[in-house]
Amino acid sequence: MIALAQAGRDLRIAFRSRGEAAHPLAFFALAATLFGLGLGSDLETLGLVAVVAIWVIALLSCMLAAESLFRRDFEDGTLEQMLLHGRPVFLAVLGKLAAHWCVSGLPLVLFAPLVGFMLQAPAQALPVLTLSLLIGTPTLTMVGAVAAALTAGLGRGGLLVALIALPLYVPVLVFGAGASVVAASGLSALPQLLWLLAMLAAAVTFAPFAVGFALRLSQEY
């Protein structure tokens, strides 16, 4: 109920600032297009690199989106009200992160097959690519949120968010891109996908608490 209320509010805000909310997807589409243009017409190379490129671009896109996750709420004071009254806070945080993923992560997952097709990724890799993004991007959102929460009180935490989040992003990238590459060569990607699921389970379990705690610290200025 609390999580739903928070998620509903955040989705409403995202809808009212559609232009801003579409930034991650625009970045994703632009970077993928430029990548395709840069690699040129060597279709064989392009196909091999495409799945990895899509994963890297999705990761950077999630990181860019995470950076501003709490900024507006911090500035207008709704964050302190959420920390004060959200009972328990981790549920409100969970709702917030779910809404954030729906706006910044889910569109990437939905567009990934299209972008993969555009970049000549092997057809048999597309389902696994999409599935790995579906499992992997929520983890990226959760980890990015912890970094964003730690820097929420600092104003512009851009580079700091990247420095905190990137080391934790690496395993997700390794298994996410790994799953797609394995699938491209026709093998089973199940082990990698299970690893991704395990990381998602850990992130969903711990990240809301870590974010709540970090946001509390941000109030002590």
Partner: peptide
């Protein structure tokens, strides 16, 4: 928890007063 009304309004500027108030109550 006590009610706290600080310098920051605690309102999302993109939402209406009604939506802000409903969120505030639902949060509790």
């Amino acid at each position: 928890r006590p009610l706290y009304l600080g310098h920051k309004p605690g309102l999302s500027l993109l939402l209406t007063p009604l939506e802000n108030l409903r969120w505030y109550l639902a949060l509790q």
